[in-house]
Design a protein around this nucleic acid. Sequence first.
RNA 1: GCACCGGUGGCGAAGUGGUAACGCGCUGGUCUGCAAAACCAGUAUUCACGGGUUCAAUUCCCGUCCGGUGCUCCA
Length: 492
Amino acid sequence: MTLRLFNTLTGQLDPLTPADGRALRMYACGPTVYDFGHIGNFRTFLHIDVLRRFLHLSGIQVRHVMNITDVDDKIIRNAAAAGQPIGEYTAPFEEAFFEDLDALRVERPELIPRATDNVPQMVALIQRLEKQGAAYRTEDGSWYFRIAAFPAYGKLSKKDLSGMEDGARVDVDEYEKDSSRDFALWKAAKPGEASWETPLGRGRPGWHIECSAMAMEYLGESFDLHAGGEDLIFPHHENEIAQSETATGRPFARHWMHVRFLLVDGRKMAKSEGNFYTLRDLLLKGYRASAIRLALISVPYRHPINFTFESLTDATGAIDRLRTFRSRLTSGEFPEGQNPAVEAAALAAREAYRAALANDLNTADARAPVFELVRSANTAMDKGEFFAANRESVLQVLADFDRVFDVLEDRDLEATRRALAWAEKSGRMADVAPELKASASISDAEIDTLVAERVEAKKQRNFTRADQIRAQLAEKGIVIEDAKDGTRWKRK
RNA sequence: GCACCGGUGGCGAAGUGGUAACGCGCUGGUCUGCAAAACCAGUAUUCACGGGUUCAAUUCCCGUCCGGUGCUCCA
């Protein structure tokens, strides 16, 4: 089943397949490592992760490049304020970024180049543009791209720039540019700033040229897909197209995917609004990493998502339902034989699931058949109409689901413990929710011991003691369930 | 101001020209020592509002209202 994915460039759903028939070559704009990422950043990376995982599920290999922008105005400014070299300043944020990706189970791209390791490629690209008369140097030693050299400018963002007359409202001279819309390729070094000595002069690369140079270096001049957040459409991606296609005379990326924004309480997330959350903030409030992942990917990427704490609670409930079901499926004992109705339901669910994802990665739609199967299989089990031979096909549906959603395996405590360790190191223990401190303070082994004692008490029909243990564990956020085939527990 | 997107049950959220998936929640029931889990039943006669096209519109068209985003750095 071929994935049909919305293409910003054509404005329609286009099939996404590798042009070379082997591996899909994709480039995704990565983080600028000047601070901790916020959940809006991670929504984009999560949906790109959904894309690559679905491609894998469909048997398509991927060559995925994500850059790290480790030099830009904010980094230079902040590093200077901290009295550090930029590399020293960015290193911890880069590390934190990957820790957060791990917590959210985002798979690593095949290649993760840093901007500062690819400056020569950027310089070469600017020189190539200069030879074609599309790049020029200004008095201060900066280099700009001449938008007039690329008539198709605006084709991605569908902007009509004809109304923007030079000189009408912008003082062109002030910028030393030929046209107010021309953008920087290379910024001349200012005293004390990080810079590179190059044939272009001493300076540093502009943001747009970074991505063009690295995409071409690792994927070739023309490749399958370029992805990023919706805010990058203009000017970043528009500029990438202009400079890349001018230089090579070939189409840059065939397909453009843009993930829409995450809003908080109906508004864009911003520090000034006081609705700005990092992943760490949420983990320390006691929300599970898996719930954050599920909540952020359950709204399809082409719709803005309105983030609320309630959405995390909802996702937690949904995950519990799925995990409980899977454990019933794997540990339950079922009579020999098979129920054809269950087999048919599993097959139908699997097909509906894949079809939904193939339709522009409709994650909301894809969940439905999985939950429908959970209900019908649970019903069959309750009625004793679920047989041993049905187990495999139902598990297969869960496996397909989890190949993309990746929330069934409980690894939440790991991520939470790492966040707690970080909070301790950076003096943020005051932000930790009290319930979380309690829950994290008890080990699995201690819980097992108490649960075993309770099972024994129940056997003796000592319900007072049994209830006492249950209440004691509940205080630490541990829930006990007495099922027919034994007692199990979970962390809330 | 210009452009774009959206308004579906208590909340989140799919979807379709022929009378509304799924998740969470809530109510009642079954089961259970009690719970939890699970299951069953009930939770939108209706998809912002007004008009139009059609045998038929939540789904297409026009208008109104409301909300959001972009046009500068931003995932």
